[in-house]
Design a protein around this nucleic acid. Structure first.
Length: 360
DNA sequence: AACCAAGTCAACCGCGTCGAA
DNA sequence: TTTCGACGCGGTTGACTTGGT
């Protein structure tokens, strides 16, 4: 019984990396690329297992990593994507250039999750813990639709993950490639294209190319990917149907929409999620707005009124604690006020930059 | 100054998936 | 079709830092 260890553990160093080790790893990868992670430590003269080297590289040493405080926009993106994708950190990280999945995961667990919980929002479902907002028939229906949305999204995610994996593979293979025309896409801008909601004419063979991520400040090379028959069949074979709103969308459409993005792939840079770049289609905008609101528990769009979500949460929060009088010290209320403003700003951003789905 | 609790984050572990043989 | 090695992902751990008493 038991699984064989990923590598020979005897004599291998564990724990924090020293600057010397970092230097060795960095120098080796810069000169040779990482190639086989398993073989890398021996070649680079490191007493580490390949897994540890890969982790150190991807989470810390990679040159295209941004460290430091998350911007409001990044937070907004994380919340949105987490509502859609759940704990799929690598998929979320694919939409946050220069951030690693580990970093996003940590940030979620240490900051965002707690903040949401504090506001009375279930960080898993992204709905207010008191389910009153969803008590009406219409809301229940929306919630049910949302669930189907999530399933559909999950299916799409699988396809995207494969693409990301492929692109990463190519990225590693061409790390030293001096040829500027052989470029690699480190992320799934195709997916983003779908989100951005502009569909070009259909491409015949389903081949999909993706423009490079990074733009000016990201030196990762870009490349062209082929959307393999295998991948297509994996999506196409899934005949499940997701019901979204009043319409149903089969996975064939997913395949179509993904293949259709070949011509619209746009550069991804750190500002890809800005409202300007997330312009909705006029037809889809309302739905996406509603969807985003539902995800975030904001009933304003769905009900036609406009109510600050955080205000609602504030009420539910204090109510949930049985506070009665709103309680708290002055500092506490100041904090709550700040918090409210902060989250309102995030949610306003969310609401002003609805994610768009082109399949509808 | 010392202690403790809470927060943060780099790193590890185990499992699932993929592709090659 | 099966097996196996390699990789990547997500959950968890533990060392370190910070803030409060």
């Amino acid at each position: 019984m038991g699984r064989s260890p990923c590598c020979e553990k005897v004599g291998l160093k564990k724990g924090p990396w020293t600057p010397e080790e970092d230097q060795k790893l960095l120098a080796y990868i810069e000169e040779h690329g990482h190639g086989s992670w398993r073989a890398l430590p021996a070649n680079a003269g490191l007493q580490r297992c390949g897994k540890s080297c890969r982790l150190r590289w991807t989470n810390y040493l990679r040159p295209d990593i941004k460290r430091g405080k998350f911007s409001v926009q990044e937070e907004q993106t994380i919340i949105q994507l987490h509502a859609l994708l759940g704990n799929r950190w690598s998929a979320i990280a694919a939409h946050l250039p220069k951030r690693t999945d580990n970093e996003i995961k940590n940030y979620w667990n240490t900051h965002l999750r707690k903040r949401l919980a504090k506001m009375g929002i279930d960080p898993v479902t992204h709905k207010p813990k008191t389910d009153t907002l969803f008590s009406g028939d219409g809301q229940t229906k929306h919630a049910a639709n949302l669930s189907h949305m999530a399933q559909w999204e999950s299916a799409r995610l699988e396809a995207e993950a494969r693409l990301v994996r492929q692109s990463k593979l190519r990225s590693s293979n061409t790390f030293h490639d001096p040829s500027p025309e052989l470029r690699v896409v480190p992320s799934s801008s195709c997916f983003q294209g779908v989100w951005n909601g502009r569909l070009p004419a259909a491409s015949g063979d389903g081949a999909m190319s993706m423009a490079g991520i990074g733009g000016a400040d990201l030196d990762s090379p870009t490349s062209t990917l082929s959307y393999s028959e295998n991948q297509r069949s994996q999506i196409g074979d899934n005949n499940s149907t997701a019901f979204i709103g009043n319409s149903s969308v089969s996975c064939d459409n997913i395949e179509t929409s993904m293949s259709l993005t070949s011509e619209l792939a746009m550069p991804v840079d750190s500002s890809w999620a800005t409202p300007e770049k997330l312009r909705p289609n006029s037809d889809n905008g309302d739905f996406i707005q509603t969807f985003t609101d539902l995800l975030l528990g904001n009933s304003a769009t769905a009900t036609g009124g406009h109510q600050s979500f955080t205000e609602g949460c504030g009420e539910s929060d204090s109510g949930g604690r049985g506070g009665g009088g709103g309680g708290g010290s002055e500092n506490g209320s100041e904090y709550l006020e700040d918090n409210k403003n902060y989250w309102n700003s995030i949610l306003n951003l969310v609401n002003s930059s609805p994610i768009d789905f082109t399949i509808f």
